[in-house]
């Protein structure tokens, strides 16, 4: 049931680039918002895709209201660091020190996990603050999401003392609790994306503390003709030579059917490989013919039905 998913506090929408991750994240967030939850979407890679889909001209580290109950913010590690220092180190002026940004840039490049822990720390902080009922995260493309989801554990092992050490504990408490945090994987039903999704699924399960809740297979072609309908199509085929242009129309339909069958095979393969414990929802292909805002609404309606 979608209610179950919406009862979580933190949902990571993971997946390779180009599979429609941002669309799914925006749609899921608007389902939540329409049902009266206060929802925050966090864009981690700073592309602003979710914001523009929801009709916002720009995003910032400070959440912007996109529509009733729905806020969008853009992750900015430097702003997150300043906020962190203000809250935890309680030295307000420190964040205004000249050159802090450069030093931070350097340390976060050199010291493994500093950037990631700030991102995940900010997310967990928002969960703890209780300002929002649901936080939907649109993370950067796949490989990087593993670093982020796994960072609390990794850094916990590296750093034995200091503030960060203490904080990895409560962060892990939120991330590793499947009632609070889950990952939702997005893929398309093409061969390579399915392989990549399987790879990512196994990495989320083995390398991160976050529970993998299910997979959304996006841009699926759904077959239309069955039984007597295929007989009708064959009858129509008889007119192929007499009606000019009919073979083109039938050709489009045949192409569509072949792609449907391929998608069906790939979906079956995905189900087999993932096992029964994981749920799979599918969303159809819209051929780029809808405006982003309408597409989000449409997909939101589909998700209401499709998401377990």
């Amino acid at each position: 049931m979608i209610e179950e998913l919406l009862s979580k506090r933190l949902v990571f929408v993971a997946g390779k680039g180009g599979v429609g991750k941002s669309t799914i994240a925006a749609a899921l967030a608007s389902v939540g918002a329409q049902r009266g939850l206060k929802v925050l979407v966090v864009e981690v890679d700073g592309k602003g895709d979710v914001a523009s889909m929801l009709g916002l001209a720009r995003t910032s580290f400070v959440p912007q209201l996109a529509c009733p109950n729905l806020w969008v913010m853009e992750m900015d590690t430097e702003a997150a660091l300043a906020e962190y220092l203000r809250i935890y180190v309680k030295v307000p002026f420190i964040s205004k020190l000249p050159g802090l940004g450069r030093i931070f840039d350097f340390v976060s490049t050199a010291a493994p996990g500093v950037r990631e822990i700030l991102v995940v720390g900010k997310l967990c902080y928002e969960v703890r603050q209780n300002t929002y009922d649901l936080i939907v995260v649109d993370p950067p493309a796949s490989g990087h999401v593993i670093s982020q989801l796994g960072v609390a554990g990794d850094v916990g092992q590296l750093i034995q003392l200091g503030l960060v050490k203490n904080q990895t504990q409560w962060m892990l408490g939120i991330l590793a609790d499947p009632r609070q945090s889950v990952a939702l994987l997005v893929a398309t039903p093409e061969e390579t994306p399915i392989e990549e999704a399987l790879d990512l699924a196994s990495r989320i399960r083995t390398e991160t503390p976050v529970h993998l809740e299910g997979v959304v297979v996006n841009r699926r072609f759904v077959s239309s003709f069955t039984g007597v309908e295929t007989e009708v199509v064959d009858e129509i085929r008889q007119f192929g030579d007499s009606i000019i242009g009919l073979n083109e129309v039938l050709g489009a339909s045949d192409l569509f059917a072949r792609i449907c069958r391929r998608h069906e095979r790939n979906l079956m393969f995905l189900r087999e490989q993932l096992g029964d414990s994981l749920r799979i929802a599918t969303v159809g292909e819209y051929f780029g013919t809808m405006e982003p805002k309408d597409l989000v609404e449409e997909v939101a309606e589909v998700l209401e039905v499709e998401l377990w």
Binding site: L85, V114, L161, L163, V164, K165
Partner: peptide
Amino acid sequence: VADMVLGSAF
């Protein structure tokens, strides 16, 4: 700050 946040051992 770095010492406080990250710990001197790290």
